[in-house]
Amino acid sequence: MTEPTPSPSRADAARNRKQLLEVATRVFASADSEPSLREIAREAGVGIATLYRHFPTREALVAAVYADQVARLTEGAGQLRTSLTPALALRRWMDLFGDWIATKDGMLSTLLAMIESEQLPHARTHTDLIAAIDDLLRAGHATGELRTDVTAEDVAAHLIGIFTVAPLPEHAARADRLLNILMHGLRPTT
């Protein structure tokens, strides 16, 4: 049995939603403060009514961007693990993590309010991210590329520290250098 072909209006709606998520992610990452929803709609090339049809509130848009970014991070860990050596996969994943942190800059106050009011499953996000790091570490343990005495929580704490002192994009070179130092420390001593 074949799947029914989506109607043109459904295809347009899916395309608009995807475009809004991509643009919102980019705008949130580059904004110093929370951008207006009109700005996001304009950048996406849609009207404000289209944005509200997909995301009726700022919180709905922030939650969707947040969920999309967490999914990219967790799925990205698996994709990297299957295509690269464990150490290189972990290092590339660290770059993805930095991008995820940077995305939150332009939605930080809404995000914090949502976490505080328990509208966002922050504990679940933490669990998913720790599991992604742990998968990468275990692959590195199996090949002998990564130390076995370092936990996923240790790596997460280091990453938060690095991106706190070297926020992206303005301190990308410093963040890159610090991530390379971290990776050096994650390799077994001989």
Rank of each mutant, 00 (worst) to 15 (best):
Y66N: 01
A132S: 10
S33C: 13
P56D: 05
G47Y: 01
K104I: 08
I101A: 11
D128M: 08
H54Y: 04
F55D: 02
S109F: 00
A49Q: 13
P86I: 15
E116W: 01
A142Y: 00
S33Q: 12
L182F: 02
F163Y: 14
D32S: 05
E116Y: 00
A142R: 11
L90I: 09
P188N: 02
L182C: 08
R81C: 00
R177S: 07
W93D: 12
T2G: 10
F55R: 02
P35H: 14
G185L: 08
A71M: 06
Y52T: 03
G45M: 01
S36Y: 07
M183F: 05
R92W: 08
V150T: 15
V62W: 00
D154A: 11
G98A: 00
A175P: 11
R91E: 09
E170Q: 07
L112N: 04
L80I: 11
D149Y: 03
D134Q: 08
H141Y: 04
G140Y: 05
V65H: 04
A156N: 05
P8D: 09
L61M: 14
L37T: 15
R17W: 02
P167Y: 13
R58G: 00
R72I: 14
L88Y: 01
W100D: 03
T50A: 06
E34K: 02
L80S: 10
